[in-house]
Design a protein around this nucleic acid. Structure first.
Length: 422
DNA sequence: TCTGGGGTCCTAGGACCC
DNA sequence: TCTGGGGTCCTAGGACCC
C-alpha cells in the first residue's frame, strides 16, 4: 500500500489574493495580466464563464472588458508570494512533509495520517486556509502525484466532490479517468496530445492502459513514467527538500522596442543587477552568464534576429558589477544593428553555494566588494528597487515595461496598508 | 499599436581538442 | 572512390510545467 499523497491548489489564485484586500472585486469578472500587461494569466470564475482563456492577449479583449465591466489588474508578485507563505503556514499542521510545487500548489505526504478520514482531514485544512487567508482551495488525494493532480482537477471541476476528491477508491478513480481528456493529464502537452489522439488514445484511462513500450516510443522515458503513475506505481516522490537549482534568469519584454546598443545595455545592466541580488539572496555564485535578446517573434513580416552568448565567470561570482561586465561582453559579441528588439535577458547557470565554490589560485578575498554588494542590497531593499543603481543602468529607463493597474503592496509595504475608516 | 516570466529536461549539429 | 572516434562546449530549439 503506497502512502497517500494530497495536492492542495488555490482557486484562481492571483484573483483570490487581490480579492482578499479589495472587496469591490467580489462577484465580478476579474482578470490579472502578465508582466508588461500582455496577456491574461489569472481569471475569476466569472471571467472563465465569459469564455476568457488563459493566455489571451488583453488587447483582443478590450470590447469584452468594456461590455462586461471586467476588472483588469496588473500582476503583483510581491503580494502573491507573501500570501503563499500564509497559505503554507495554515497547512503546516496537516502533514509532516510538503513539496511546494508552485506559487499556488503544494503536495503533502500524508504518511502517518492513513488511519484518519482523509477527506475530513482535507476539509479541515481547506477551512484553516480559508480562515487565515480568505483563499479558496481544492484538494486531491491519491496514491501518486500524477493521480493527485487528476484528483485535484476532479475536485475543481465537479461540484459533487465538495472541494475534496479522493481517488484511492477504485470505482471513483476509474470513473474520473474515463472522463478526463488525455490533453488535460499533467505532463501531456499539445505535441504529445496530438500524437496520442492519432493513436486513438483520448482519455486518462486510455493513456493508463496503453502498452508501456508504446508509451516509451511516443514520449521517451518521460511518458513511460507518467503511464506508471497513472497505474498507481509511484515514479515521483514528494520532495520535501528543495533540490539545488540549476539556473536562474531575469528576462523582460520591452514596453518600447529597442534599436540602440546603449538602450539594450541599460536593460541588461538592470537585469544583471537583479540577477546578482537573486544570487546573493540564495547564497549562490554562478559559473556562467548568458545574455540574450531577440526581435518580435509574433511579427514574421519584420526582420528577425535572435542571439545569445554565454560568458564563463571565472572565478565564480555573485558580484553584480562582474555580472554586468559579463553581460556587456556577451551583448557586444551578439549585437547587430538595424533590428528592433522586444525582449532581452540574463541567464545564470552552474550555480553553486557560495561557501562551496572552487577557489582559484589568484583569487584574493575582496571584502570591500562584498560589503559594497550587501550595502546595495540593503539600500534597495529598504528604499525601493531603484534607489541605488549603477551609472550604466541609469535612472532613465526607455525600455521599461508597463504595469498600469498594479494593486498596492498591501502586505509588504507600510505605506500601502489598507486603512480602516470607522 | 498591443502576445509574460521563470523554470526543467532533452536533442542535435558544429567547433574544437586529443 | 571510400569518411576516425570520442569527449566537451556552445548555440539553438522543442517540449513541458506554473
Amino acid at each position: 500500500m503506497t502512502t497517500p499523497i494530497a495536492l492542495i491548489d488555490c482557486n484562481s489564485y492571483y484573483v483570490s489574493c487581490e480579492r482578499a484586500f479589495d472587496a469591490s472585486l467580489k462577484d465580478v469578472p476579474v482578470v490579472v495580466l502578465s508582466n508588461n500587461d500582455g496577456c491574461v494569466i489569472a481569471r475569476s470564475a466569472e471571467s472563465k464563464a465569459l469564455g476568457i482563456k488563459m493566455g489571451d492577449p488583453i488587447h483582443h479583449l478590450r470590447d469584452m472588458v468594456r461590455r462586461h465591466g471586467i476588472r483588469v489588474l496588473s500582476s503583483n508578485y510581491t503580494l502573491y508570494g507573501d500570501m503563499q507563505r500564509r497559505v503554507i503556514a495554515a497547512c503546516e499542521a496537516f502533514a509532516r512533509d510538503f513539496e511546494i510545487y508552485s506559487i499556488d500548489e503544494t503536495f503533502l505526504d500524508l504518511a502517518g495520517f492513513e488511519d484518519r478520514d482523509l477527506v475530513a482531514h482535507a476539509q479541515a485544512m481547506r477551512n484553516q486556509v480559508q480562515q487565515w487567508t480568505t483563499i479558496p482551495t481544492c484538494v486531491g488525494i491519491a496514491g501518486t502525484k500524477t493521480l493527485a493532480k487528476l484528483a485535484n482537477r476532479a475536485a475543481k471541476t465537479d461540484p459533487r466532490f465538495g472541494g475534496v476528491a479522493d481517488l484511492r477508491d477504485d470505482a471513483v478513480r476509474r470513473k474520473v479517468m474515463d472522463v478526463i481528456e488525455v490533453g488535460d493529464v499533467w505532463g501531456v502537452g499539445r505535441a504529445t496530445a496530438t500524437k496520442l489522439l492519432d493513436l486513438d488514445i483520448r482519455t486518462a484511462a486510455a493513456l493508463r492502459d496503453m502498452p508501456m513500450k508504446q508509451a516509451r516510443a511516443v514520449g521517451t522515458v518521460v511518458l513511460e513514467r507518467l503511464v506508471a503513475e497513472l497505474r498507481g506505481e509511484a515514479a515521483n516522490a514528494v520532495e520535501a527538500i528543495e533540490p539545488q537549482r540549476k539556473g536562474m534568469a531575469v528576462t523582460r519584454s520591452f514596453g518600447t522596442p529597442v534599436t540602440r546598443f546603449d538602450h539594450l545595455m541599460g536593460a541588461l545592466t538592470e537585469y544583471a543587477m537583479r540577477a546578482g541580488e537573486k544570487l546573493r539572496a540564495h547564497g549562490l555564485v554562478a559559473g556562467r552568464l548568458t545574455a540574450f535578446f531577440h526581435t518580435n517573434r509574433h511579427r514574421p513580416d519584420r526582420p528577425q534576429y535572435a542571439a545569445s552568448r554565454a560568458v564563463t565567470l571565472h572565478p565564480m561570482t555573485a558580484d553584480s558589477l562582474k555580472l554586468i561586465a559579463a553581460a556587456r561582453r556577451g551583448a557586444e559579441r551578439a549585437w547587430r544593428d538595424g533590428y528592433a528588439f522586444t525582449k532581452a535577458g540574463v541567464i545564470l547557470e552552474n550555480l553553486v553555494a557560495s561557501e562551496l565554490r572552487p577557489r582559484t589560485l589568484f583569487e584574493e578575498p575582496d571584502d570591500r566588494r562584498a560589503r559594497l554588494m550587501s550595502a546595495l542590497d540593503e539600500i534597495n531593499g529598504r528604499f525601493g528597487k531603484w534607489s541605488a543603481v549603477t551609472a550604466s543602468q541609469g535612472f532613465k529607463r526607455e525600455w521599461k515595461l508597463r504595469a498600469d493597474s498594479r494593486s498596492p503592496a498591501w502586505t509588504t509595504r507600510l505605506s500601502d496598508l489598507p486603512l480602516v475608516k470607522t
